Simulated assay, not measured.
Amino acid sequence: MHADQRAAAFASERQRLIRLGHRMLGSFSEAEDVVQDAWLRWAGVEEEVRDPAAYLTRIVTRLCLDRMKSARARREIYVGPWLPEPLVESFDAYETIADDVTVTLMLALERLSPLERAAFLLHDVFDVALTEVAVALDREPAAVRQLASRARRRVQTARPRYQVGAAEAERIVRTFFAASRDGDVAALSALLARDVEIHSDGGGKVLAFRNVVCGLVNALRLFASAHRKAVTSPSFLRSAIVDGLPGYLSLDHNGALQTTALEIRAGRIFGIYMVKNPDKLTHVQASTRTAQNKRQR
């Protein structure tokens, strides 16, 4: 394979590899570093490679496994609740999401061993054949089948089970934003489930809840208090798909960007996932600026 063919093969797989790296590590910056390392290794391969996609998948998987131990150590000292760096996609693509890896599933994947996580993602999410997963993990197919099966059982409750139509999802998104902005307890009571959970990731960089807020009463008290204390109101930027869930981008009362994802079941919100840590939003800010520039042209 000539250098230009090699470059073309890598370019065609790059976005898929970044998505895999993000699902493995929960970080776009680390996923991009891994994919760059994979490119350097791919560019130096001398032997003929019959299946570039499978070969690159193996490289990225093994590089991710090398990084996962240090990533877990950093999360043990993380300030406040940890959420993965958000994958933000256009709401126009709501009916055609590429996979069903939502933020709720990403959090469930944190409970798996690195090998279980890799086996589950490769086989169940990215549709890699079991024999190829075995090669990527350097394990026997029978062992990989057990890894994937064990992982599947441990995360099955976190996989999406409720389908919400695009129109209904956007209605709930906009209604929730307005109710939370206004501290409207009555509207929030009609939207939130009794056992709702609020996860707010500030990473110690910005003001956020230091613990997961659980239960309707605590959630209503929180939103009412936030409204009373706010000097200015947050601003709604746009609806979006945030880590596979309906959500939105907004600016808080200080003008800082945040993403919010909503786990909706049967018309009620069971989970609210807000990423406020600016270190996790650099890629979202860049894409938002690009979209704004295109609209202004």
Rank of each mutant, 00 (worst) to 15 (best):
M1C: 03
A7T: 11
E13F: 05
E13P: 00
R16T: 14
R19S: 14
L20V: 11
L20R: 02
G21K: 04
M24G: 08
E30C: 04
A31S: 13
A31H: 03
D33A: 14
D33Q: 13
D33E: 14
D33Y: 09
V34Y: 02
W39C: 01
G44L: 06
G44P: 01
V45D: 01
E46W: 08
E47R: 14
D51T: 04
D51F: 08
A53H: 10
L56D: 02
R58H: 09
R58Q: 11
I59K: 00
V60G: 02
V60P: 00
R62H: 04
R62V: 08
R62G: 12
C64A: 09
R67H: 13
R75T: 10
E76W: 05
Y78Q: 01
E85M: 07
P86Y: 02
S90F: 05
F91E: 03
A93P: 02
A98P: 10
A98S: 15
A108V: 07
P114Y: 02
R117D: 06
A118C: 10
A119T: 09
L130C: 08
T131A: 15
T131V: 15
T131I: 14
E132R: 11
A136H: 08
D138Q: 09
P141Q: 00
R145Y: 11
Q156F: 10
P160C: 11
R161M: 08
A167R: 06
E168W: 05
E168H: 08
E170T: 14
F177L: 04
D182Y: 06
G183E: 04
A190Y: 05
L191N: 05
L191M: 10
R194S: 10
E197K: 12
S200F: 03
G202Q: 06
G202V: 10
G203N: 05
L207I: 13
R210N: 06
N211W: 10
L220H: 00
R221Q: 11
R221G: 11
A224Y: 06
A224R: 09
R228Y: 12
K229L: 13
R238T: 12
A240H: 06
I241W: 01
V242R: 00
D243G: 04
D243A: 09
P246C: 14
G247D: 06
Y248T: 02
L249R: 00
S250L: 10
G255S: 10
A256E: 09
A256S: 07
Q258C: 09
T260Q: 12
A261W: 05
L262C: 07
I269Q: 03
F270P: 00
G271A: 09
I272R: 02
I272Q: 01
I272K: 02
Y273E: 04
V275K: 00
N277H: 13
L281M: 09
V284E: 01
S287R: 10
S287G: 05
K294L: 15
R295M: 13
R295G: 14
Q296A: 14
